[in-house]
Nucleic acid binder design. Structure first.
Lengths: 123, 123
DNA sequence: TTTACATATGAACAATTATTCATATATTTA
DNA sequence: TAAATATATGAATAATTGTTCATATGTAAA
């Protein structure tokens, strides 16, 4: 993930910014850097069509890797890579049944985030 | 945005997938491709620290480009580029007052999406 | 109508990332 | 134990994207 290099001084607006103590105040009200990075990383998971599709599949149905691949007409490898990312972010969980590993949504939080997104694009 | 090339046939699992009519059913229950792309594009906007920071700033306070740059210690150009993306996605709006252009959040939808994200990472 | 200032934008570069391909691991069955 | 099947994973490649730099646009003041 790209973490931006901090400038010693922002030299925008020829150093003549308008609202000095406003800036000061808002700077102090900002959440910790770390949280903002984590939040961006969280949304990054939803920022890919393949992962969105996987989540929509699992929304309907627990499924094995093979069937997800079949459903999305993609390779098993591609799906497996993306499932790993979803798992790392605790968006999906899995259980093993013999050779087959079934994936499902980790919690209902995800459903409501997806719905809110859908609401916005269909405003 | 990267749109994946569809395979004629998914050849995962050596063509021997487990749950044929399950796959069939879920395929038909999927939302339109287009919507899924749009949804991923929507979340892509939140998937960058700079844009997240801008949104958190505007959550507190309407602000001009220059002051946002000052607040985040980044160049005016970088902020301006990101504001354009936020505007295109209807996450922010702006008004002109003389030479200065003030940006603010487009609606309260955004607040709740950010909060839900924060909730998840602090689960 | 020049000059200064606030913002926007195009091109180039650096960094990130999704998929593919080859192969490894794990489990079941013969 | 060997063979087959389901899934995972590392490396390479192609594509996307955020920032910088230089410059353009638009507005106000001199």
């Amino acid at each position: 993930m790209k973490r931006d290099i901090q400038k010693e001084h922002a030299q925008s607006c020829d150093m003549l910014h308008h609202h000095d103590e406003l800036v000061e105040r808002v700077v102090h009200e900002m959440p910790p850097e770390e949280d903002l990075y984590d939040l961006a990383d969280f949304f990054k998971v939803f920022a890919d069509t393949t992962r969105i599709k996987i989540l929509y599949v699992l929304l309907k149905q627990e499924m094995c890797v093979c069937d997800i691949a079949q459903t999305l007409e993609m390779t098993q490898s591609a799906i497996s890579h993306q499932l790993r990312i979803l798992k790392q972010m605790d968006l999906v969980k899995n259980r093993r049944d013999g050779k087959i590993i079934y994936y499902s949504l980790a919690d209902n939080h995800i459903v409501s985030i997806l719905s809110q997104g859908m609401d916005h694009i269909n405003e």
